[in-house]
């Protein structure tokens, strides 16, 4: 293991485990238990949050977009994907700080703590995917949660190590997420905005994922090759940027706790 400067090194010939399945499972299980008190009833709260938003927004905006027959489905797909994005990035950002007590106790790869921190958001999204699949029998294509998961992991890796240096990053991100909810076309169809603005909205990573999912799930139309490439590139850029920051800053993460 060589970290940073040429003159420093730590050689480890003691079978360092790269992927520790037991640790990953324990982190996911205990995180779920701590958050929902280990009950299924507790987990229902996680689903109720986007569901209640859906009921309120549908009640208000379905009048506005009464002519759009797929508005409700588009809204629910958008809301659950957004909930995954918002919850996943918020948990990921604070993950190393929140689990810092493990980093200073033993040699543990920090990325395991970051990636497992978004497990709760993944579970919620998986349950939603199951439910929406039942409703959308004709859909035929899986949701593009994978691309969003890559974006969330990329963001979490980078922001978790930055948060150890900038402890108000979570507050800044809260503001961004709040504004970002309206930048992404969740409660309104993208079509109501002039086309010249679409490009700017697509820069915000959740937008292409939500639009892609709606096309595949609700409209039953497979997006174009360009759409696939754009989505893959978007996710890859987020992951690469996050990994770059993580690689540079994570070796000294324990020193900032």
């Amino acid at each position: 293991m060589t970290v940073g400067a040429e003159t420093m090194s730590a050689v480890d010939r003691s079978r360092p485990p790269i992927l520790r399945a037991g640790l990953i499972w324990t982190l996911v299980r205990t995180d779920f238990k701590a958050r929902y008190h280990g009950t299924l009833g507790g987990f229902v709260w996680a689903l109720l949050k986007p569901m209640s938003m859906f009921v309120v927004l549908m009640g208000v905006f379905s009048f506005l977009f009464a002519s759009n027959p797929t508005y409700k489905l588009n809204l629910i797909v958008g809301l659950f994907l957004w909930d995954f994005f918002a919850e996943g990035t918020k948990s990921g950002l604070t993950s190393l700080h929140a689990r810092g007590y493990l980093l200073t106790k033993a040699r543990v790869p920090p990325w395991i703590l970051v990636v497992t921190s978004i497990s709760n958001a993944v579970i919620t999204l998986a349950v939603f995917s199951l439910v929406i699949m039942i409703f959308l029998i004709s859909a035929g294509h899986p949701p593009t949660g994978q691309a969003l998961a890559v974006i969330v992991i990329g963001f979490s890796l980078g922001s978790s190590v930055l948060f150890l240096r900038f402890r108000d990053l979570n507050q800044v991100w809260d503001v961004v997420v709040q504004a970002g909810f309206f930048v992404a076309p969740i409660i309104y169809p993208l079509g109501i905005l002039p086309e010249r603005f679409h490009f700017y909205l697509y820069i915000w990573p959740p937008t292409p994922v939500i639009e892609f999912s709606r096309a595949a799930l609700v409209a039953g139309v497979m997006p174009t090759t360009t759409g696939h490439v754009y989505l893959a590139a978007d996710a890859a850029c987020c992951l690469a940027a996050g990994m770059l920051i993580y690689r540079r800053l994570s070796p000294r993460a324990a020193e900032h706790l």
């Binding site: 940073g4 090194s9 730590a10 010939r13 106790k105 033993a106 324990a254």
Partner: peptide
């Protein structure tokens, strides 16, 4: 124990190391 990286120099471990550090806190 591999928790901090050194600035300079070399640490070579040929066996698994179990640290018992800072145990009063961190649950």
């Amino acid at each position: 124990c591999g928790i901090y990286p050194p600035d300079r120099g070399r640490v070579e471990r040929r066996a698994a190391v179990t640290p018992i550090l800072d145990l009063g806190v961190g649950w």
